[in-house]
């Protein structure tokens, strides 16, 4: 039998893994973004000592490889009596780790916004939270879209590390298929192709945000000129 045929006959395994990867990635990326927006709000409007502590945690997290962090949650914490299954540990790791990166991107972008806009929002009766949600955050997303997009792709790639802590995602599935039927080329090429496809979709989305930003004069080229 042709190797591609073998793979085709076991497509359920690969597609099942791909579905797991998409769920891990999609849920984590969205949750991480929401968490990061709250972190940034806390850093910017919370009390100073609290903000410093949060920033310290964010900076520290960004100095860790994702896998050692996942190890910490999955293998390390049970010593302290905190036990997660691999999926839960994977979700927690992806969400909190990438929230730190998103938070740093958003915080850095916020620093480039003029303070007048926030002031105008206050003068028009916005509460702090509403001002953040309606005036600040949309601009942060538009302005930082390419950088956020890169981070989202890194989040997608980091899901593959979870195969090491026994999560059955795409890479684990490809690995299982290849070792059972010895079709490493076919199995991994398809897996890489699926990762690539997903990242293309992410980039298309970022490009659309880019067009929206351009139309509003917040484009990256314009921003660069202004700087």
């Amino acid at each position: 039998m042709n190797k591609w045929e073998i793979l085709w006959n076991h497509r359920e395994m690969i597609l099942g893994g791909f579905k797991s990867t998409l769920v891990l990635f999609g849920v984590s990326a969205i949750a991480a973004f929401l968490l990061s927006s709250l972190i940034v709000l806390a850093i910017r409007t919370g009390r100073a000592p609290f903000g410093r502590v949060v920033r310290g945690v964010v900076d520290g997290m960004r100095m860790l490889p994702f896998l050692i962090y996942a190890y910490l949650l999955y293998y390390g914490l049970p010593s302290l009596g905190i036990r997660f299954d691999a999926w839960t540990a994977g979700f927690i790791a992806l969400i909190t780790y990438h929230a730190a990166y998103f938070a740093e991107i958003l915080r850095g972008t916020w620093a480039t916004l003029s303070t007048g806009q926030a002031e105008a929002a206050r003068a028009h009766g916005f509460t702090t939270f509403m001002m953040y949600r309606r005036i600040i955050l949309p601009q942060l997303v538009l302005r930082a879209a390419p950088v956020l997009g890169n981070q989202v792709i890194i989040c997608l790639k980091d899901t593959a590390f979870l195969s090491i802590i026994t999560v059955r995602e795409l890479t684990a599935a490809a690995s299982a298929v290849q070792s059972q039927y010895f079709i490493p080329f076919e199995a991994f090429i398809v897996a890489i192709g699926l990762y690539w496809l997903t990242s293309m979709l992410i980039e298309a989305l970022v490009a659309r945000l880019g067009f929206a930003a351009e139309r509003k004069g917040l484009g990256y080229k314009l921003a660069a000129v202004r700087r």
Partner: peptide, 24 residues
Amino acid sequence: DRELARMRARIGMVFQSFNLWPHL
């Protein structure tokens, strides 16, 4: 915050540097 916002809603303000919201 909320009460202050409600008070501010009754006072209009026009700024020297306009401070329009650029994404809108």
